[in-house]
Nucleic acid binder design. Sequence first.
DNA 1: GCTTAAACGAGACGGTACGTCACGTCTTAGG
DNA 2: CCTAAGACGTGACGTACCGTCTCGTTTAAGC
Lengths: 203, 203, 203, 203
Amino acid sequence: MCAMKAHKAPNSARRNEQSRQAILTATRELIAEVGYAKVTIEAIASRAGVGKQTIYRWWPSKGFVVLESFVALIETEEGAVELPDTGDIEADLKLVMRETMEEFATPAFEAPIRALNTEIINDPALAEAYNEKLAAPTDEVMRARLRSARHAGQLSPDADLDLMAEMLYGPLYQRWLLRSGPLTPEFADGLVEAVLRAFGPRA
Amino acid sequence: MCAMKAHKAPNSARRNEQSRQAILTATRELIAEVGYAKVTIEAIASRAGVGKQTIYRWWPSKGFVVLESFVALIETEEGAVELPDTGDIEADLKLVMRETMEEFATPAFEAPIRALNTEIINDPALAEAYNEKLAAPTDEVMRARLRSARHAGQLSPDADLDLMAEMLYGPLYQRWLLRSGPLTPEFADGLVEAVLRAFGPRA
Amino acid sequence: MCAMKAHKAPNSARRNEQSRQAILTATRELIAEVGYAKVTIEAIASRAGVGKQTIYRWWPSKGFVVLESFVALIETEEGAVELPDTGDIEADLKLVMRETMEEFATPAFEAPIRALNTEIINDPALAEAYNEKLAAPTDEVMRARLRSARHAGQLSPDADLDLMAEMLYGPLYQRWLLRSGPLTPEFADGLVEAVLRAFGPRA
Amino acid sequence: MCAMKAHKAPNSARRNEQSRQAILTATRELIAEVGYAKVTIEAIASRAGVGKQTIYRWWPSKGFVVLESFVALIETEEGAVELPDTGDIEADLKLVMRETMEEFATPAFEAPIRALNTEIINDPALAEAYNEKLAAPTDEVMRARLRSARHAGQLSPDADLDLMAEMLYGPLYQRWLLRSGPLTPEFADGLVEAVLRAFGPRA
DNA sequence: GCTTAAACGAGACGGTACGTCACGTCTTAGG
DNA sequence: CCTAAGACGTGACGTACCGTCTCGTTTAAGC
């Protein structure tokens, strides 16, 4: 793992993969059971049947263990995730946004992501790892769909797809993370429509 | 303070205002000095020359102390904050966005806001207090300027100003909070232009 | 306790006497059960139903806890300990030496004294406290009996009673502590006879 | 080494003598530098440039490593150590006792002997090895000189030389080990004189 | 001289205990 | 009764070593 290199880089060849998996699994279970804030390194070690040092040896902080446990989960599930492409960018985006909102409302997803964000705010190193490992792939999926739409003439040829993606996710994310407003389908639809007005073919 | 009522409400009449101020000041200083995560109740009490119990008696958690210390600061400074209104909504927004970005880059502002966000993520009660005390007033200022622009015909008559405000702040906030990208003037400008395309008079 | 003053001296007035007794009792029990080397601060705290910090607050090291626990025991038992005085110093000393040997052979006594000696060897401060609190009173009892014998003409008028006491206890103690030889009645008798030849009336 | 046999007895033929020496040397150096209590197997291994297992393979505990390192040192220095024999047992003994006291005051000697005694107290197996390897030879040297004196008529024909040796060393050792009193020449002289009164020719 | 089993250096591992920190509660003494 | 002070039980921290257990890599004996 790249972000780990800065940590210590012990001889990875000798690393016990069984222990690593046990730690990541225990971490996931504990977050689901008691919530991130109450998860302790000691509890993870105990649950995983591992010495504390084995955690401290390979991860610089609780945040990185959580991040890696989450990344491991994602990597398992997905193979090649893609957004739906019906040819109708507006419909597709509205669908995706609603699905994202629902995902956020799922406790199994919500708890660990909130957990990570808590740490990311105060830990730039973790933020970097997070953006690289979790956010970037998600964003890339979105950009791929937007590229397809632009190619199909549904977006202005010079539409800034990066900005577009941020305008779609940013307000949604803020509402969710800071609970500054309800996550309704109307909100999602309004957001998609506004963004398409900004980057549509005639703009 | 509203959010306090749920806590305990001892006899407020007897409350020592000097101690209260000392606590809020100490809290602000400590956050600026060592960062939110490392601020402890014991350190606040010690710095303020106050017993720990005096803090526990009046605030339900560290987050609320921090919130109140920050609210106190804001309330002191501001009287009637308003956005500039030159008549040119695009120029005004670009200016405001740039200023907001600069504010975020100021350590004295950054540290406590990050601090609050850390707590808000996992504490709905605190989030509510935060949104009510800090976010709402800021948003209202923005909405007032947008209303003025709509009235001047620079925005579509049916522009959803709440959504517009969120589309302006959301992407900016996300980049800052999660460090998912650089806060450049170009980013601010592009964001403003896109939002105005979405809600401009012909839309 | 004198030796404690150098440690920290928190406000002793607030000290919880119940906790103190529980700690000393737990310490004694644990030493008897598992031996000094295997007694840990954590085990003492746990057994006493006390926080570790409460031990660290009042004692500078495990050795001092053990010492105080032992002193407390001694102070309870004894009121005015005296050696027997039948008028026959040789008989009395032989009796005392045999009793001391038997005491040393009792696990309940042996374990804690070995414990203390382990620490004393490498801790001058503890050694001082030990000599003052435990050794000195024991020696004084011996010297009192020797004084009586000298007064009765059973010892040379210029007999050095301090040296005499050390010559009685020293070889015995060494055999016991370092297991350099068996603790037999013959050894005790021979030792007493030799010392009396050295300090007897005609010497 | 005899005490080692009970341990494991790997194929000694293959033993790396360089590693053995490096371990013993590192042990001595570390004891001198940081004191016995703070010497760890890991530190010895690291300093000696040796794997931990190489220590555990050949010695049953830290105490035995220290003992052997000390024995090795002694064996190097001495060839045939003997006490001076001027024909005057009192003068010779006083000289030897003073020299012993000075040796005890030398940090290079004091630290490791204290170290060993710490372990001996609680480890009968180590005590046995210690008495056999270090104490017995020293005592035999003393007994040889006493035998010579008895033969020369300076001691009673039936003087118990073992007891005599213990009466000479015991009080001295106790004062030193437990710091129960100062090691002065006067103390040494008084001790020798008393012992000689007890075992002199007319006794 | 080639083979092969050991001893070796290195160091990861599951553990235990360390001494420290901060938590939130409770107790004391003073105004 | 509120307050400053701070002791208390609790529990997690991150570190240090323990003694065991692989890993390749020497290395020296016996074929």
